[in-house]
């Protein structure tokens, strides 16, 4: 456990280079469902980052006491308790947003990102690095959510955080809202495009071809 930990790279790596959503395929469900507006995307990002950081720290604190066979159950129970707390806070102070998020706050419990990070990282590291890693992953997740949420709200309603950024055609302006942006398919298209953009920027993330045609087995790549 005496390895030197570079906090800065632990924190910034998950932002783009090791982004949990676009590279590790973790936590996609909620990333797409709550991004119809910036406000819900931001609330979700904050909730997830808090849960992720706290659960990583707690699990890392007791990592030597958890028997290996039941560790999944222990981890889920810890995460679920934190999620219940967050859910109750949201219902108490942000009732409107909590209704817009509906069941997706509760679904942080089974968000693959939380369990993925605790399983892959927090279980083997001291509390501080584990928390930093979790916080970085939470930020990377938030980044994707905010980008997608911003694009969908801007082009779907012409708004940012509910503020009218583009003048709507109905109100004498020039912008006709794209209804498709608020529907499910556009979220998939946007995330696909985002993955493409990031991989064009960082070519080392490109996946090797799954099937290589027989006549080109050697020459490909």
């Amino acid at each position: 456990m005496a390895q030197r930990v570079n906090f800065w790279s632990t924190l910034t790596d998950p932002l783009i280079r090791q982004n949990p959503v676009t590279l590790q395929i973790l936590g996609i469900c909620s990333a797409l469902a709550v991004t119809t507006s910036l406000a819900t995307a931001l609330t979700m990002s904050v909730s997830l980052t808090v849960v992720l950081t706290l659960s990583a720290a707690i699990i890392s604190l007791i990592r030597r006491h958890i028997p290996d066979t039941i560790r999944l159950i222990v981890q889920i129970v810890i995460v679920a308790s934190l999620v219940i707390v967050i859910d109750q806070i949201l219902q108490a102070y942000f009732a409107e947003i909590s209704r817009a998020l509906s069941i997706y706050v509760s679904l942080i419990t089974t968000n693959c990102l939380v369990l993925g990070r605790t399983e892959a990282h927090a279980r083997h590291h001291a509390p501080l690095p584990a928390a930093v890693d979790a916080f970085g992953n939470g930020l990377g997740y938030s980044l994707v959510l905010i980008v997608i949420g911003g694009v969908r709200e801007l082009f779907g309603r012409g708004q940012l955080f509910g503020w009218q950024a583009f003048a709507l055609a109905d109100a004498g302006g020039w912008f006709t809202p794209l209804g498709l942006m608020l529907l499910a398919p556009s979220a998939f298209f946007l995330l696909g495009g985002l993955v493409w953009a990031i991989r064009a920027w960082h070519p080392e993330q490109v996946e090797p071809p799954e099937h290589v045609p027989p006549d080109r087995t050697r020459s490909a790549e």
Binding site: V195, W196, V206
Partner: peptide, 16 residues
């Protein structure tokens, strides 16, 4: 396109 291979195209297909 190489950047779309794997995850990227899977998202686009799911969207369709």
């Amino acid at each position: 396109p190489t950047g779309l291979r794997g995850l990227g195209i899977a998202f686009i297909l799911t969207g369709m």
